[in-house]
Nucleic acid binder design. Sequence first.
DNA 1: CCGAGAATAGAACGATCGTACGTTTTTGTC
DNA 2: GACAAAAACGTACGATCGTTCTATTCTCGG
Lengths: 200, 200
Amino acid sequence: MRKGERTRRAILSTAAALASQEGLEPLSIGRLAEATGMSKSGLFAHFGSKEELQVATVDHAASMFVDEVIAPAREAPRGLARVWALCDHMVDYSERQVFPGGCFFAATSAEFNHRPGPVRDEIQKMIRSWLSYLEHAVEQAQAAGELDPSVPAREVAFQLDAFAQAGNAQYQLFRDPGVFDEARRAIRERLESLRLRPAA
Amino acid sequence: MRKGERTRRAILSTAAALASQEGLEPLSIGRLAEATGMSKSGLFAHFGSKEELQVATVDHAASMFVDEVIAPAREAPRGLARVWALCDHMVDYSERQVFPGGCFFAATSAEFNHRPGPVRDEIQKMIRSWLSYLEHAVEQAQAAGELDPSVPAREVAFQLDAFAQAGNAQYQLFRDPGVFDEARRAIRERLESLRLRPAA
DNA sequence: CCGAGAATAGAACGATCGTACGTTTTTGTC
DNA sequence: GACAAAAACGTACGATCGTTCTATTCTCGG
């Protein structure tokens, strides 16, 4: 791999970590340069503009999310087990502080909600795909006869995601690690309530 | 009322509205002055510093939240009815866009999570008191024999708040008004599942 | 209706922001 | 090891930030 590419990734990794704490916009190029031990202009040369740096940072964070949450859950068998794996890995990813500010997308999505442009689009796309994937997993569990199919998969995904997000948000606010278990319990009990006994 | 006090409130009202969209920090004093039709220094004189302006803005938003959500729910009788009223008014408050950027606290809490100081403290205090009040209402409903007391009130409050927050967040992201009904349905069905039939 | 005090405005400050440009250092290839 | 390309650096720019100071305008009780 070219040196430039290695440097670029190191920059994006640092940028994603810092942005999860302070946000994408307040993270200035000067401070990011300082954090990576580079000069402002040397860092800037890797991206044509701050906006491009932000888009690249979101992409980098998205691929980390896939590595940490989606990919491991794909190893669980289709159906209820995978739904649970997705949610559990999601909570874990918040709890383990893969990003020091908790979930990168929870931290940055509010920031760009009212700021049209490629950065907002990228964040939207990522979150939408997460919700779609979760919903799809629920549908598979319903098709397998493991979850009650009379409750729309979209509703189930909405609720499971809500629990995971609330766990992340409340931990970032109050620093009480107990909220992660609260989130997991809510998810588990909601899934339990929708579970169908195999028709043997 | 003094002229200064009137001006101050108008400033804070504008500030809270703008901050719900862009955040407290990126809202600069110059732009706030422009939005209120004042000079930068004339506006600034009402507050000793930007930080004090932010704290005052949070306080103003908190009192609006009380007016819009807490106070009307207090008119419902103690018990399940009040729990439902709290949640319903919370979703309404997001949906009616009392603040143009949705819930003020959802928009600004992430911003200050990693920024110690009086602004963060004020936001924390407000959210904590909302969650406590909701939990307390659940406890009353349990004591009245309307909700299953075997599930900790804290868990119930966590889940109800999670649904309301998720509705707000997803609307701000995707602009699909349907998420508010999704949130209300999730809340209603969760309460329904915990409901006890009166022992006649 | 007048005068004291409150309220607002205007101009300027140092700092920091994103960005541009030219130079220097490093890298990888023949 | 020379040399072109790539990468990093140093410096400077205009703009905007929060804040300060002084001057002007407005408010309202006597």
